[in-house]
């Protein structure tokens, strides 16, 4: 018996140690180092003295950085809200689509995942820039409108001025929604697909209209999926770096861009580390909130 128990322990160690080692060496240890840096100060170009100071955190909470923090939270929240508003009908449509179409529709949602984020973002630039596809389309519509005006004997519309669609907050939110939509649609789809369709039919049968059924039955039952979708959209959106960097203007930088600048151009690792950890605490707070909201619900299998 004893040898069997020992053998089982060996098996456990043999299978568990490599991944645990991996996590410790490549995730926890670097994280700990960065965490330690956040309590230090630069002494030379390459050396950091970990003195236990809170100066970095104090600086991070100055209005300038706090403002960027709050703005990042606002942009991430707006992105999440837009993803929810766009993603919910999409997920609902896929759930109610014919059986044979469903895998293809899901594939369409996931397809962008298989393309590099950088390439997708540059593609978006090609669409949104001054002489991009969006403005071409607008110009064509403008010309048609102009032609129609002359047709009915009115003054033409005049010269088309391309819209400034890039390098502003709009472009950042647009890009973030584009990138994060699948994160929202997939958990929503999973939650909606699990709802017994006869519950919606029962609601209709009892006299409720479609809208009432949506808000009294579908949304409450899909709530765990909605919350999951919100979390896994909000968290990466809050830490987005590439999208605001490439699509944003000078005033639309997010916290990740500031952090990047501290580590690279400013060479202020301690301050960058403090900002990073503030971002991480914010993320933890959101996840803790989600766990708090979902407490006791996982028992009936609705949680993710």
């Amino acid at each position: 018996m004893a040898s069997q128990k020992q053998e089982r322990r060996l098996t456990f160690l043999a299978t568990a140690l490599p991944p645990i080692g991996w996590v410790v060496v490549f995730f926890l240890a670097p994280l700990a180092i960065v965490w330690a840096y956040s309590f230090g100060q630069n002494v030379s170009l390459t050396e950091v003295d970990i003195s236990g100071t809170f100066a970095n955190y104090a600086r991070a909470l100055q209005p300038l950085y706090l403002g960027i923090f709050l703005k990042s939270i606002f942009i991430a929240a707006l992105t999440t809200l837009l993803c929810l508003i766009i993603g919910f009908p999409v997920a609902l449509a896929i759930v109610f689509a014919e059986e044979r179409w469903r895998p293809w529709l899901l594939l369409l949602v996931m397809l962008p995942f298989w393309t590099n984020l950088l390439i997708r973002t540059y593609a978006l630039i090609a669409v949104l820039r001054t002489n991009g596809f969006a403005n071409f389309t607008l110009e064509w519509l403008w010309d048609q409108g102009s032609w129609l005006m002359t047709l009915v004997g009115l003054e033409p519309l005049g010269e088309f001025t391309p819209m400034q669609l890039l390098y502003n907050n709009f472009a950042v939110v647009f890009g973030l929604v584009y990138v994060h939509l699948p994160f929202m649609v997939l958990p929503l789809y999973a939650a909606l697909d699990r709802i017994d369709k006869s519950l919606m039919e029962a609601s209709l049968d009892l006299g409720a209209g479609h809208l009432r059924t949506l808000f009294s039955i579908v949304v409450p039952l899909a709530l765990p999926g909605i919350i999951s979708g919100i979390i896994i959209t909000f968290v990466p959106a809050l830490g987005a770096y590439l999208t605001p960097d490439l699509l944003g203007g000078p005033d639309s930088q997010m916290i990740a861009n500031v952090i990047e600048r501290q580590f690279k151009r400013a060479n202020d690792w301690p301050f960058g580390a403090a900002l990073s950890f503030l971002l991480m605490y914010a993320t933890f707070a959101v996840i803790a909130l989600r766990a708090y909201l979902a407490r006791g619900k996982s028992a009936d299998g609705h949680g993710i």
Binding site: D196, S198, L199, E201
Partner: peptide, 10 residues
């Protein structure tokens, strides 16, 4: 209607 699965709102 009384549904086969009863469709009681959980």
């Amino acid at each position: 209607m009384v549904f086969q699965s009863y469709a009681v709102f959980p």
